[in-house]
């Protein structure tokens, strides 16, 4: 069953792409298998214009006010925020670990840059994630082709510019195939 794509309202400012907000929260003590991950991830809604984005965003809790093991995901409509999605499986992500207190501002700057097409890497961007954890928060931006070094370098440089991060911030690029390997390594039977 194909869902109807959202369209901009009259007089609204269209975005280059439609996007979907997702939310996930991990139940403490449960293993993060693919199946439970997919069960825990919920769609919030999709939008096609700047105004529709603000209507969602203004009603959402700021990441810095979330508790527990929670994530917001903002992906292009039609791309699931999972490694296994066709758009993601050859891809990777830039990861930035943030000390507590920075997540709300960094997340907003990151998604505004993505929605406004500030990365200038064609069709490469898939989506962005903010992950709220116990001691630190993590933001990441996912792209389609992990092996495309010109693209990943351009995304890194744009991130530095739009996030206005402290100079000692460490940025790490991880391919999704590596993420899958390491997560399997943590399972008791692997």
């Amino acid at each position: 069953s194909k869902k109807k794509m959202v369209v901009p309202g009259a007089g609204e400012h269209p975005l280059q792409y439609n996007y979907t907000f997702w939310y996930s929260r991990r139940t403490p003590g449960r293993p993060a298998s693919t199946q439970s991950y997919e069960q825990n991830i919920k769609q919030i809604g999709s939008f096609a214009s700047v105004e529709q984005f603000w209507r969602f965003y203004s009603h959402m809790i700021r990441p810095g006010d979330l508790t527990g093991h929670s994530d917001f995901h903002l992906f292009k409509e039609g791309i699931k925020p999972m490694w296994e999605d066709d758009a993601n499986k050859m891809g990777g992500k830039w990861i930035i670990r943030l000390r507590k207190g920075l997540a709300s501002r960094c997340w907003e700057n990151l998604i505004l840059a993505m929605l406004g097409e500030q990365f200038m890497v064609g069709e490469e961007i898939c989506g962005a994630v903010v992950s709220v954890r116990f001691q630190e928060d993590i933001i990441s931006i996912w792209n389609k082709t992990a092996s495309d070094q010109a693209t990943t370098a351009r995304i890194r440089d744009t991130l530095r510019r739009v996030l206005n991060l402290p100079p000692n911030t460490i940025m790490e690029y991880k391919t999704h195939t590596d993420s899958i390997k390491y997560s399997l390594g943590r399972l008791p039977w692997a």
Binding site: E12, G116, E117
Partner: peptide, 21 residues
């Protein structure tokens, strides 16, 4: 084709002045 590019300042302005319905 052409790309729809918005800077942060413009996106924040759209938040303050929503389209009249």
């Amino acid at each position: 084709g052409t790309r729809i590019i918005y800077d942060r300042k413009f996106l924040l302005e759209c938040r303050r002045s929503p389209v009249a319905k």
